[in-house]
Structures are given as structure tokens and as C-alpha cells.
């Protein structure tokens, strides 16, 4: 009797361990409140939108003091997208995430050519085409290859004081993430 009880408890503990491991690994694929589910409702209109459109931003890492954030959902299965923004802000940074919220690429204004944002995001197959003949519009663009077909892009601008607000807003308003025709 006692021995059977011990075996049952041991089996339960092993089961708990298996369940724990399974849930930890499965959570990123089944979570309903993850970053991607919040972003998935954004329209694919080729523009960055204010992060406030995602609802509660306070504890989600979108509301840092002195920064404003814009966000764009992307899909590059059919065409690469071209990220552009122009303006003058003391600091901007860009981060591209896949739908599991893994960072694909990130850069800031010091790692950009000039101060403007000019990045092209393409799949490996699209990249072969781009390398063969680069469209003139993308000549100065930073080419980023990613196997993530869908995901989201965050563009942050730092606003150290109120006098920078209009400048930062203009920078984020100018930000686009529109598809490009590789043949054009």
C-alpha cells in the first residue's frame, strides 16, 4: 500500500515536470496576449501608426519617458518593404521583430547612413533578386534579409523636452513601411 502511494506521488511529480516543460515551450505559440496578437489588428497600410493605437501601453514597454513610439505590422511574403523616415530628432532607433517577438534587426541613427531611415526588408529569395538588379529607389538602402515573413517594426524617437515634440512627431509621421516592386 505504502509502496503504491509512493509510486503514485513519484508519477505525479514526473508528470508535473513534463507538463511544466511542455507548457513553457508551447506558451510562445499559444499565448493570446502576446505582442503579436496586439499588433495583428493593425492595418497593412504601409505607414507607421502611433503605439497608443494598441491600447494599454503603460506596462508593455511602449511607454518610456521621453520617447514616442510608432509601430508598423509587415508582411513580406509577396514583396519586400521599404522603411523610410526623415526628420531631425536627437535619437531614433528601429527594431524589427518576427511574430514570436524575436529581434530580427535593430539600428539607430548613428548606425544609419546620414540621419534618415532607409531600410529594405526582404526574404532570402527576394534578396537574390534585389542583389541582381537593385532598383534605383533602393540604391542607398540598408538591405536586411529575414526569413520572418510577418512581424512588426518599432520606431522610437527620443523627445528630451517639449520643444522637440513637433520635430519628433514630424519624424514619426513621415515614417513609411510600404511594399516596393523589385522590378521597378
Amino acid at each position: 500500500m505504502m509502496r503504491n502511494l509512493l509510486i503514485a506521488v513519484a508519477a505525479g511529480l514526473v508528470g508535473a515536470l513534463v507538463l511544466h516543460i511542455a507548457m513553457i515551450f508551447a506558451l510562445p505559440f499559444f499565448a493570446t496576449g502576446d505582442a503579436w496578437s496586439r499588433v495583428a489588428g493593425l492595418p497593412l497600410e504601409g505607414r507607421f501608426v502611433e503605439a497608443e493605437r494598441l491600447g494599454d501601453t503603460e506596462t508593455a514597454g511602449l511607454e518610456h519617458p521621453f520617447t514616442t513610439t510608432a509601430i508598423c505590422r509587415f508582411e513580406i511574403t509577396s514583396q519586400p518593404i521599404h522603411l523610410r523616415a526623415e526628420g531631425y530628432v536627437p535619437f531614433w532607433s528601429l527594431a524589427v521583430f518576427d511574430r514570436q517577438s524575436n529581434e530580427v534587426f535593430s539600428m539607430n541613427d548613428r548606425t544609419a547612413a546620414g540621419t534618415a531611415l532607409d531600410v529594405t526588408l526582404a526574404t532570402p529569395i527576394q534578396m537574390i533578386g534585389l542583389r541582381e538588379s537593385i532598383p534605383p529607389a533602393l540604391a542607398n538602402s540598408v538591405l536586411v534579409e529575414t526569413s520572418a515573413a510577418t512581424g512588426y517594426i518599432l520606431l522610437r524617437a527620443v523627445v528630451p523636452d517639449a520643444s522637440w515634440e513637433s520635430s519628433a512627431a514630424a519624424f514619426l509621421d513621415s515614417a513609411t513601411c510600404a511594399p516596393v516592386d523589385p522590378a521597378a
Partner: peptide, 22 residues
């Protein structure tokens, strides 16, 4: 990231800073 960090960010739905951001 380790599996726990991945599960945590899926559950909290947070938007992290990229490596070049900060």
C-alpha cells in the same frame, strides 16, 4: 533567449528594446 524568457514575453505581451536601441 532562454525558454523561460520566451514564455514570459509571450505571456506579458511586452515590447522590448532591440540591441542597437538600448
Amino acid at each position: 533567449a532562454n525558454p523561460y524568457a520566451k514564455a514570459r514575453r509571450a505571456r506579458t505581451g511586452s515590447f522590448a528594446l532591440g540591441q542597437a536601441e538600448g
